[in-house]
Design a protein around this nucleic acid. Structure first.
Length: 591
RNA sequence: GCUGGUGUAGCUCAGCCGGUAGAGCAACUGACUUGUAAUCAGUAGGUCGUCGGUUCGAAUCCGUCCACCAGCUCCA
C-alpha cells in the first residue's frame, strides 16, 4: 500500500500550551458571539482533543455566514490584545455578578462548583466567564491565522436529551498557521478515505433508501472481499480449535427473556414478530443460540473447553440519527464465538483469544492496538464475587500477554467484564473492533452444566468474543485503512489485462482463464480504448497489477507488467508473472 | 429520537425574485488501430426524495414523511 506519512499533531491533552490556546480561544469566541448576538446565553466551552467548542442558548440557529462574522469579531478582539485576568471571588459575589448578567446556565454551573473561592477570568474589562483555566496571559497571543471555526451542531444542555437543545460551535486553534494547515490536511485525508465514498466509487457496497437505513448490500467486488475475509477467518478458527456453527436469525421471544436480553437490552432490539400467535424475536446477539447448542448434550469436564464460532448475522435497533455507513448499522454479521470452559481454563482461553486476535488483525495490516479493560456497570447482573473473579481473569491474561491497557470503570457489559481492543489505522485513528468478555451469567440462566471428575454437576464458564467485531464495520475500517487501495491478497480485482489493440484481447483472455482457474482474480479490459485510458481506468479502480499485452508480448509469450505503486516493471514471461503473483498472494505482500 | 443542513441523470453538481430542466464524467453506438494516467463524434438517460397544500402555473413557496450529512444522545 501507499506510505502515507502520518501527520504528527499534538492533542490538546498532550500540550499545556494548546490547552491555554484553546481555552482562551473558546472564551474569545463566546465574547464575540455575545457581541454579535446579544440574546445568546453562554453555557460551557471546553477544549477537546483537536480544538474547542462553546455551547450557546440562542433562539435563531447560527449559519455558516454567522460563523464567518464570529471569526471576524474574534480577530478584532484578538487585535485589542486584551489581558486575561484571573480573579477569585466568593460564592456570593459570583452569584451576584451572574444575576446581574442574567445568565441562567452560569447559575447552574456555579451551583455545581464545590470549591471556593470561585475563579473568574476576565478578557480585559469587557467580558468575563466562570472558568477554572488555564489561559493565555493575553488574547493577543492567539494567532488569528491558526484559528478556524468549523461547524455548528445541536447539543443538549449537560448532554442530557431531556434538557434544552443548545447550539454548539466547534472551532480549532493551533500555535501556528502551519499546524492549522496540517490539521486541515489531515481532515481532507480522512475525507479521501471515507469508506462511504470509496464504497460507492469502487462499487463495493451500498445502503439503499428503498430497503431502509443501516442495511447493507454487498456488491460483487465487496462480496469477493467478504468471502476472502470469511474464508481466512474460518481457517484460522478451525486451526485454533474452534467448531463452526450456523444458527437461526430469530427465535421465540421467551428465549430472550431467559437470556436476560429482554430485560437488559430491549431498547436495542427490533420489535417481536407474531407468527401463529407465538412471538419471535430477530436476534440481536448469537450467544443464546450457542448456549442452546451446548445444551443439546451432557458434557464431561474432559470435553472442555468447547469453542463454538459463527459468522452470525444480528439485527439491532439503532436510532435513525446514529446510523453511519458501515460503521453503525442495523443488520450486521458478527464473527462471534463462545468458549465454554472450566474455571481453571479461563486464563489460558483468554490468552488464546488474545493471541488469535493479534494474529488475525496483523494479517489484515493492523499491528497497533489500544486495549481497555471494562469493569462492572451499574445496570448488571451477578454477584460481586463473580465479577471480581472474571475481572481478575481478564487482567491476568492481559498481563501475561504483556499488553498495556487502561481500565474503563463501569464500562462492562451487563453480564460481565470485558477487554476491548481498538485498532489504529494508517492515519492514526482508533476503531473499536475486537472484544473478549467473561460471562458468568448466561450459563446460570440457561442452567448449563458439565460433569466434573467427581461426578458432580458444575456450571461452566462462558467466554464471549469477537475479533472483527462486525464484518461490516471491519470492512469499513479496512477500506479507510487502505484508502481503498487494498493489498494484493485482498483486492477484489488483483490484475487487469490491458490489450493495446482489439486483436490482443484473445491472447489476454486465454491467460486470464488459466489464472482464474488458479484462484487469481483477474479481468480483461475489452473497452477498446487507448492504452493511456486503459491505465488510467485501472489506476482509478485501484487495481494493484496491470498486464499490458500487444504484439511484442504476444510474439514472445510475455506480459508487460505495471503495478499501481511500482510503475512499469517491464516484460515478464507468463510463467514468471504467474509465479510471482501466486507467491505474493500467498505471502500477503506486494507483487 | 433531538438540533441544524442537504436531497435535481448512474456519479459530481448548475438551475436568480415561481413560467413544466442543464453541464462534466460514466453508459451506449460509430469512427480511429491505438504502447504506460483522459482520441473524436453522436445517442440515450430525470414524476427534480415522498405525499399533500398555495398558485393560472411549483425543482423553486408552505407543510408532512423518508433518507443522507455534521453533531447531540445512545452504543455488548
Amino acid at each position: 500500500m501507499s506510505e502515507t506519512t502520518p501527520i504528527h499533531l499534538p492533542k490538546t491533552s498532550e500540550s499545556e500550551r494548546l490547552k491555554r490556546i484553546r481555552h482562551t480561544a473558546s472564551h474569545v469566541m463566546a465574547m464575540a458571539v455575545q457581541r454579535l448576538f446579544p440574546k445568546a446565553k453562554v453555557t460551557i466551552g471546553p477544549w477537546i482533543e483537536d480544538g474547542f467548542y462553546y455551547d450557546f442558548d440562542h433562539p435563531e440557529p447560527f449559519t455558516e455566514q454567522d460563523l464567518k462574522a464570529i471569526k471576524k469579531e474574534m480577530v478584532k478582539i484578538i487585535k485589542k490584545k486584551l489581558p486575561v485576568i484571573r480573579e477569585e471571588v466568593s460564592r456570593e459575589e459570583a452569584l451576584r455578578r451572574i444575576q446581574a448578567l442574567n445568565e441562567p446556565y452560569k447559575l447552574e454551573i456555579l451551583a455545581d462548583i464545590k470549591e471556593e473561592p470561585i475563579t473568574i477570568y476576565h478578557l480585559g474589562d469587557e467580558w468575563w466567564d466562570l472558568c477554572a483555566g488555564p489561559h493565555l496571559d493575553n488574547v493577543g497571543e492567539l494567532n488569528p491565522d491558526a484559528i478556524e471555526l468549523e461547524s455548528v451542531a445541536g447539543a443538549y444542555w449537560r448532554g442530557d436529551e431531556r434538557n434544552p437543545m443548545l447550539q454548539r460551535i466547534y472551532g480549532t486553534a493551533w500555535e501556528t498557521p502551519e499546524q492549522l494547515q496540517a490539521y486541515l490536511q489531515r481532515k481532507r485525508e480522512a475525507l479521501r478515505r471515507d469508506h462511504r465514498r470509496l464504497g460507492q466509487e469502487l462499487d463495493l457496497f451500498s445502503i439503499q433508501e428503498e430497503a431502509g437505513g443501516g442495511l447493507v448490500f454487498w456488491h460483487p467486488k465487496g462480496a469477493r472481499m467478504r468471502l476472502l475475509i470469511e474464508n481466512y477467518w474460518r481457517e484460522a478458527h478451525l486451526r485454533a480449535g474452534y467448531e463452526l456453527l450456523y444458527t437461526p436469525h430469530l427465535a421465540h421471544l421467551d428465549l430472550w427473556k431467559t437470556s436476560g436480553h429482554w430485560d437488559f437490552y430491549r431498547e436495542s432490539m427490533f420489535d417481536a414478530i407474531t407468527v401463529e400467535s407465538q412471538e419471535y424475536q430477530l436476534k440481536p446477539m448469537n450467544c443464546p443460540f450457542h448456549v442452546l447448542t451446548y445444551k443439546t448434550h451432557l458434557h464431561s469436564y474432559r470435553e472442555l473447553p468447547i469453542r463454538y464460532a459463527e459468522l452470525g448475522t444480528v439485527y439491532r435497533y439503532e436510532r435513525s440519527g446514529t446510523l453511519h455507513g458501515l460503521m453503525r448499522v442495523r443488520g450486521f454479521t458478527q464473527d462471534d464465538a463462545h468458549i465454554f470452559c472450566l474455571p481453571e481454563q479461563v486464563a489460558d482461553e483468554i490468552l488464546g483469544v488474545l493471541n488469535l486476535t493479534e494474529q488475525v488483525l496483523s494479517d489484515f495490516g493492523f499491528r497497533d492496538y489500544e486495549v481497555n479493560l471494562s469493569t462492572r456497570p451499574e445496570k448488571s447482573v451477578g454477584s460481586d464475587e463473580v465479577w471480581e473473579l472474571a475481572t481478575n481473569a481478564l487482567r491476568n491474561a492481559l498481563d501475561t500477554k504483556g499488553w498495556a491497557y487502561k481500565e474503563d470503570v463501569g464500562g462492562g457489559a451487563f453480564y460481565g467484564p470485558k477487554i476491548d481492543i481498538k485498532i489504529r489505522d494508517a492515519i492514526g485513528r482508533l476503531w473499536q473492533c475486537s472484544t473478549v468478555q467473561v460471562d458468568f451469567n448466561l450459563p446460570q440462566r440457561f442452567g448449563l452444566e458439565y460433569v466434573a471428575a467427581d461426578g458432580s454437576r458444575q456450571v461452566p464458564i462462558m467466554i464471549h468474543r469477537a475479533i472483527f467485531g462486525s464484518l461490516e464495520r471491519f470492512f469499513g475500517v479496512l477500506i479507510e485503512h487502505y484508502a481503498g487501495d487494498f493489498p494484493l491478497w485482498l483486492a477484489p480485482v488483483q490484475l487487469r489485462f490491458l490489450p493495446v489493440g482489439e486483436q490482443y484481447v484473445s491472447y489476454a483472455k486465454n491467460i486470464a482463464t488459466d489464472w482464474q482457474k488458479l484462484g487469481l482474480r483477474v479481468e480483461v479490459d475489452t473497452s477498446g480504448e487507448r492504452l493511456g485510458k486503459l491505465i488510467r481506468n485501472a489506476e482509478t479502480a485501484k487495481i494493484p497489477v496491470m498486464a499490458i499485452v500487444g504484439s511484442k508480448e504476444q510474439e514472445t509469450g510475455t506480459l508487460s507488467i505495471r503495478t499501481r505503486h511500482g510503475g512499469d516493471l517491464g516484460a515478464l514471461t507468463v510463467a514468471e508473472a504467474e509465479e510471482r503473483l501466486l507467491k505474493a498472494v500467498q505471502q500477503r505482500c506486494d507483487f
